[in-house]
Design a protein around this nucleic acid. Sequence first.
DNA 1: TGCAATGCATA
DNA 2: GTATGCATTGCAA
Length: 947
Amino acid sequence: MSDQKRLFLVDAYALIFRGYYAFIKNPRINSKGEDTSAIMGFMNSLLDVIKRERPDHLGVCFDKGGSADRVEMFEAYKANRDETPEGIKTAIPHIHNILKAMHIPIMVKEGYEADDVIGTLSRQAEKEGYKTYMVTPDKDFAQLVTDNIFMYRPVFGGGYETWGIPEVQKKFEVTDPLQVIDFLGMMGDSSDNIPGLPGVGEKTAKKFIAQFGSMEGLLANTDQLKGKMKEKVEANGELGLLSKKLATIMLDVPVTFDAKDFELDHPNIEAVKQIFQDLEFRRLTENFLKTFAGNGETAPTETSVAPAETKTTPKPTSSAGAGQFSLFGNEEEDTAEVVSEYTRKTSETAPHFYQYINTPSSKRLFIKSLLQQPSVCFDTETTGLNPLTAELVGIAFSWETGKGFYLPFPEDKNESQNLIEDLRPFFENENIEKIGQNLKYDIKVLAKYNIDVKGKLFDTMLAHYLINPDMRHNMDVLAETYLNYTPISITELIGKKGKNQLSMREVDLEKQTEYAVEDADITLQLKEHFQNELGEANTQKLFDDIEIPLLRVLAAMEIEGINLDKKFLNSLSEDLNNDITNLEKKIYDAAGEEFNIASPKQLGVILFEKLKLVDKPKKTKTGQYATSEDILSYLAKEHEIIQNILDFRGLSKLKSTYVDALPKQVEESTGRVHTDYMQTVAATGRLSSNNPNLQNIPIRTERGRQVRKAFVPRNEDYTLLAADYSQIELRIIAALSKEKTMIEAFKNGEDIHASTASKVFNIPINEVSREQRSNAKTVNFGIIYGVSAFGLSNQTNLSRSESKELIDTYYATYPQLRNYISEQVDFARDNGYVQTVLGRRRYLKDINSRNAVVRGAAERNAVNAPIQGSAADIIKIAMINIYNKLNEGDFKTKMLLQVHDELVFDVYKPELETIKTLVKTEMENAYKLEVPLDVDLDIGDNWLEAH
DNA sequence: TGCAATGCATA
DNA sequence: GTATGCATTGCAA
């Protein structure tokens, strides 16, 4: 290091925010309830810098009142910043006091940001021969870097890096640090609300800088750009220049650098100690004393100080007197055996008392108390996500906000089973309400331990799904939205998934307790919140009568799984492989060389450069040749190779998505495929299926439908039964719209598409041509989706005007249908939502949008959601009723799958006739409409035959 | 390694 | 035109 004098200018807020958020998961709270995270974080950084660098000149700069100039230029500047957190606001006066006691100058200038103050001072200091180090993590400062001005950046995980000109050149790919301004102006900065150029991100900005040197250079040479980018940049030149101005740090703040103001003086040790003591900083006090020992003239030998106090282990506030927080009420026995107690505060919530239970007597007390509760929230912790293989690690319980218990489970199977037996009286008690988040999971886990969860259920995930189906429903989101509370993240506990992820069992008991009971506690609080809202949205019945009972039905279906003929799929895979290889050969022959057909890049070169199939081939936005399905189909007549390529793609898809993927999904422990039904993802009320998705097994093409042959009954004594609603959505729209003509057609059992064609084209039903029926069918479906003439002409061989005419005659034929559609849209406009026959709502916030495209989409939703959703409601009712009948009758037959309008059963052959009647009756009578519901039944030795 | 975009399977 | 899930690709981290 040279003898040149060195000035360190600290960007206070940047370090304060950084320090504050470093502790966000475990805020430092002292006994007075003050959140000292920000102070702690900032002081750690400051002492760290002093200790490492021993600066002779030092100042700390604060913002004050924001940047008046920038706001004047651009109203939205920094407008989307969240309110400064309370923990930071309260920290500022303390930090000021500490700095004063340390005799460190505080630089503030009303109406200017710290950036500007630091920029101005550093330039002045440079003239006086100083080297300036700007202490900040903020990349914006890179624009200030010169031969004598550096950034001194804290890096993640501790330590610092110094950025001089070479580092800035490398990081930003610029030749001059001043170009950082152009760079920031182009890509924008969402945290400061600097707009930047639309469509330009980091990569493009770097490219532009390399190509044009500056924002002005870019704007002057837009002729060198192409496509969308050219349009966007040209249209937003003004915005670009403004963004550049906003990103520019000012160098003319009215401040004067006077070296003696910044000399690092001896701190008033006693005063600092006193402040630290008041704040209850112990390690920091030691750190401070060490840093300034001997007036700082004998520099400590250590080269780095680990960011102190970042360990996450919570400290029990006391080890004695555990009984004082006991939830056991007036039990006479001691509760000292409740070993752990942990108190956690956040700024928003009251203290939490979470206890784990691992002694016989505390367990006895706990269970006694548990059984006296009318309503309990619980949450199971397991070794994995698959409930069929996961083992219990513990169960958390809570029945009072902020309090709860955790019962850890031993690894040994027998011991674990013994422990769960102690809880059987609770879980199987009909009179205790069980509350949980995604109870289907817990019920499935407990089922593996032969526990049948009985009594009333309240699932917060399902409740929220009904309250707001368009949102997501995971607990973290719900807690943040409704309770203003951030739960401990699972990642924090067990690590990122992959290499070093722990199992829940490997986590310390205290942390398990903290995490698990917090979940139960929060879920309980969410329940309080949601149960009122359900009433307000009028969805209480839907919750009690449909979604909650369905949860048990789905759990049973998922546990049951379906038998899969792996051998069959393997042979199918070989067949496909042969065909694919043959196609490959043909393609290579035609191409004259071997290449990767799956790579669009290589394929493009072959088709358009080598074979020159087209004069001027289309390119994608990335500059590749376009080889998508529609383009290739269009070219199919040009060359035989094209059809082969299309076939190759189709077969590869079939093979990878179904034929090869399904056998891998067979659960080893059961030998069956267990899909997971998601009850809360489809905004309309439908279920969805995943891991694997059994709701999209091919059926349309001959080749694809072969996959269905692999779904087979459990053994020779069983057969598969598929029961599907015929035209349920059209029946629903006919009934809801009270369209007499269509209702009559259904009542008479007519072929509805032929019937529609006959009326629309005004010909007898038996003279309807194939094409006419097909067009009528397309319109019938189109109505359900909210047709447009444009969409229709895309689907049929009709022109746009023919399509329009067809739609017009269609509406003339079914006038009530048209009325119904406009009524739905009106209802949505007035109420902001539409609803199904059972009152399931879908909110349509865009229904009054001024943007016609956005509004149009909402209008189509207004038509479709009640139809699709009512069909979903109806089949859900049927499922619940059938499930109950199967249980009551002690049938061996099981319901296995649901595919929106179809149910699949594994039928015990002797029960076949009874089951056929039962299923058909329950499905057809699940809900009374003015139109009869009709169910087709088919049986077979596999899912294809049963169709 | 994780993400969005694309393409395609179903109702 | 509605509603989903998943495999692959290509790009960003």
